[in-house]
């Protein structure tokens, strides 16, 4: 039984690679419309979906239940607000909005409607594995966790993510994922110290971040560097073991090359991970398969009322607050206290 008809606004990287294929693969969700000018691409990929050029068309369409905002960050607030005003449920790609103030306003406007943010990397295979190792006690007390998202891109590209402006650059783009994961593991830190920089020739927005989250004794470093090859993903040192994982979760590449979440190869990790035990011995770790599909299954189940929503708007708001605290820390060269 179909619970809902879904319209995706935007058919760039987020809409094309992530949202449309994941929605199409979710039993019970129907990809009914895509708002984009790329009509021929959409017709080829999703013959059953309408391609429309103006978001207004899906806001006024009474058959549409759920709107997915997968546009550049600067339009998240306006489109989500209009969708909510039209009585639609809303999924927003991360980051939720440009500012935490905008995010709070959206939460106010949601009233009774589902509002969530696509923090899909909670379902990265390596993160799921790490979470399990932490919960089961294999790692003991975690002293240090470094979570990296390095993509070697030495040349600045002309795309909105790399232009100047609020909520642009890698701290908002990739940092939002890493923050959400850290919050899932450890909750809110006591303080945040961020170093953000634009270091490539011609760079006008953040292309490097190194952010330290301070907990009582645990330290978490979130880092992304456009001048670093993808190598380390997680380095975790605990009293029980260290967990070392190289390489990025394969789901984005799998989706980009047309693999469906139902395909056997989807989400299968090819890069091995290892535990280093006290005394120096090592043990291979099998990384469980990633499953971004779980995000839309959760949205569906929440709409059906059979399960709580996996990513709450409040959690996404906390990510926004920490992104801003990071900016403030970098600007003033000091730690920003994040607990109230």
């Amino acid at each position: 039984m179909s619970c809902c008809n879904v319209a995706v606004i935007g058919y760039g990287l987020a809409g094309r690679v992530f949202h449309a294929p994941l929605i199409a693969a979710t039993e019970g969700l129907h990809l009914a419309a895509i708002v984009s000018s790329r009509t021929s691409e959409i017709a080829a990929a999703y013959p059953g979906a309408k391609a429309v050029s103006d978001p207004q068309q899906v806001f006024v369409d009474p058959d549409i239940d759920l709107i997915v905002v997968a546009t550049p960050n600067e339009s998240h607030f306006e489109l989500a607000a209009r969708a909510l005003a039209a009585g639609k449920h809303v999924v927003i790609d991360k980051p939720m909005a440009l500012t935490s103030a905008e995010a709070r306003k959206l939460i106010d406007k949601a009233r009774g409607r589902l509002l969530t943010v696509f923090h899909n990397r909670r379902w990265d295979g390596d993160f799921l594995t790490l979470k399990k190792l932490a919960r089961e006690g294999t790692l003991g007390t975690i002293a240090y966790l470094e979570s990296r998202f390095d993509l070697y891109r030495p040349n600045v590209q002309d795309r909105w993510r790399e232009r100047a402006g609020p909520a642009t650059g890698t701290w908002y783009d990739l940092g939002s994922h890493l923050l959400d994961q850290a919050l899932q593991l450890f909750g809110k830190p006591l303080g945040i110290t961020a170093d953000l920089a634009a270091r490539r020739n011609g760079a006008v927005t953040t292309d490097y971040f190194r952010v330290l989250l301070r907990y009582e004794t645990t330290r978490v470093v979130l880092a992304g560097d456009s001048l670093a090859p993808t190598d380390r993903r997680f380095i975790v040192h605990g009293s029980g073991a260290s967990f070392i994982k190289l390489g990025l979760d394969p789901q984005q590449n799998a989706l980009a090359t047309g693999l469906k979440p139902s395909d056997a190869a989807y989400g299968l990790e090819s890069v091995p991970a290892r535990l280093v035990l006290p005394g120096g011995g090592e043990q291979a770790v099998t990384i469980e398969s990633g499953r971004y599909g779980a995000f839309y299954e959760s949205v569906r189940d929440a709409l059906r009322g059979t399960a709580p929503l996996a990513v709450t708007a409040g959690e996404a708001l906390t990510v926004m607050e920490l992104l801003e605290a990071g900016l403030e820390s970098a600007q003033f060269g000091r730690e920003v206290i994040t607990t109230r």
Partner: peptide, 24 residues
Amino acid sequence: KLRVVLTSCFLAPEQELRFVVHGS
């Protein structure tokens, strides 16, 4: 432009990272 990180943790294996350097 350069950033340097110096770090020491007594709950980390000694055979793990020593240097990470990113150059052009």
